[in-house]
Each structure stands twice: as C-alpha cells, then as structure tokens.
Simulated scan of single mutants.
Amino acid sequence: MSGWINTALFGVYPYICLSVLLVGSLIRFDYGAYTWKSDSSQLLRRDRLRLGSNLFHYGVLIVIGGHFVGFLMPDWAISWLISPAQHELLAMGVGGLAGAIAIIGLTILIHRRLTDPRIRHNSRAWDVAIVLMLWCQLALGLLTVPISAEHMGGGVFEQLVTYVKGVVTFQPDVARLLKGTPLIYRVHILLGFTIFLVSPFTRMIHIWSAPVWYLGRRGYQIVRTRHPAPSVVRETRQ
C-alpha cells in the first residue's frame, strides 16, 4: 500500500469518522430528538428477540469495554500488571469468547429481521445495513484471533495498541504505525471507523443513551397491572 493511501485511510479517515460521529450526533439530538431511538421491533413480534438481543448486547458490551481498556489503558499500568504476550492472550481469550456470543445473538436477530415478513416490511434499508456491518465487524474480530495466535510475542499487538493511542492523542504520522501489520487488522479498523461514521444517521445513535444511571437508581419502580385487583372484582360483581 502506497504511503499516501495508507495516510489517507489510517491517518485522515479516522478523524473524519470521529468528527462526523460527534457533530452528527449533536445535530440529530438538536433537530431530530424524536428519531433518537433504537426502533425496537418488539411490538411486531417478540419471537427470538429476547434471546438474540441479550446474547448480542452482553457480548458486544464486553467486546467494546475490552477494546477501551485494552487499547487505551496507560502503558505503565499494563506493564505493571501483565506482559505484552499475556495482554495479547487475555484479549484473544476474553474478546474471542465475547465476540462469539455477540455474533450468535446478532445472527439470530438478523435471521429474525430478514425472514419475518412483518419485521422485514417495517425495516428501513439502513436497519438492515447497519446490522450486517456489525456482523461483518464481529466476524473480522473473530478471524483475527487465529492470526494473533501466530504472533504471540506481542509485537503486532503492541503496534495496534500504539496506533489506537496515537489516534486518540493526535500523534503526527500515526498511519505509519500500521505498516507491516496483517491486512485483516487494517480492514477491521477501517470497518470500525466506518461504523462510527454512519452511526449518527442510523438506529446506532441510541448507544449514546445507554442507561448506566439505571444501576444506581433510587426508589422503587412503579408497575401497573392490566388486571383489576381481586377486591375491585368483588365490588364490581356486587
């Protein structure tokens, strides 16, 4: 890959994607607040939704969390805890298992969306496109596991970690850090940034509204039942 193409794809394109993600999300929140939702198809049919959704979300949250911790943790903290080889092995084990769970759940959701006539009819083109992009991204991530197993010294993994940190910290000529890495890693990175790019225009926008406050909420949840209380029934019969 020539130098200018490598720079454009891995030195410029990531910042375009992240800028569109941030600015596009703010614009949508301001001008399209009523479209800020995941567009759940639960009301159309619940069949397979709970299983597929739970598997996908639990798995992908671990994958995303692992990426943030593994790639953005300070070097001194990682060196103090584990060696580069152990770091790579941990990423392969936890990431591979979580990715497998996520892709199984997403496969169930895609099959449900494409084969159920009601859901398929009510799905926009971007609804299908974004889940297929996510599936491909998970598949690419799983395919990197056997490639990583061939480079257990940690050298290639350290290149990737340094690249991600370089993008976040605006290091100059960061694209050169990916030279010599296997192609599948670079495709995985490009597709990941592309998902960031299109997220403000799709149902993926709801990732900004993850209800983390739910875990520490105070008070009780008020639930209203559809059926009248027994005392009300007796009074009605009288």
Rank of each mutant, 00 (worst) to 15 (best):
V23T: 13
L26K: 04
I27H: 00
F29C: 09
G32R: 15
G32Y: 07
Y34H: 11
T35M: 13
T35N: 09
W36P: 07
W36K: 12
W36F: 12
K37P: 12
S38C: 10
Q42G: 12
Q42L: 14
L44T: 05
R45Y: 06
D47A: 06
D47L: 11
R48E: 11
L49E: 10
S53P: 00
N54R: 12
N54I: 14
L55G: 11
F56V: 02
F56T: 04
H57P: 01
G59Q: 05
I62R: 13
I64C: 02
G65S: 13
G66E: 02
H67P: 06
V69Q: 06
G70L: 08
F71S: 08
L72Y: 11
L72W: 07
L72S: 09
M73G: 00
M73T: 09
P74Y: 02
P74H: 04
P74K: 03
D75L: 13
A77Y: 10
I78F: 14
I78N: 08
I78Y: 02
I78P: 04
W80L: 11
I82D: 07
I82T: 13
S83V: 11
S83Y: 11
S83L: 06
P84Q: 05
P84K: 10
A85S: 14
Q86V: 13
H87T: 07
E88P: 03
L89F: 14
L90Q: 03
L90V: 04
M92Q: 07
G93K: 15
V94C: 12
G95V: 02
L97A: 14
A98N: 03
G99H: 02
I101S: 02
I101H: 10
I101E: 00
I104Y: 01
G105P: 01
L106P: 02
I108K: 00
L109P: 03
I110V: 04
R112A: 07
R113N: 10
R113W: 03
R113T: 06
T115H: 02
T115A: 15
T115R: 03
I119S: 07
H121N: 10
H121E: 15
N122L: 12
N122W: 13
S123H: 05
A125C: 05
A125G: 06
W126I: 15
W126T: 15
W126C: 09
V128E: 06
V128N: 09
A129M: 12
V131C: 09
V131W: 03
L134D: 05
L134T: 01
Q137N: 13
Q137C: 06
L140C: 08
G141R: 07
L142H: 00
L142N: 00
L143R: 01
P146H: 02
I147P: 01
I147R: 06
S148E: 10
H151R: 07
M152R: 15
G153E: 09
G153I: 14
G153Y: 08
G153T: 08
G153C: 03
G154S: 10
G154H: 09
G154W: 10
G154Q: 14
G155C: 07
G155D: 11
G155I: 13
G155E: 15
V156Y: 08
V156L: 12
V156S: 09
E158K: 10
L160P: 05
V161K: 11
V161L: 09
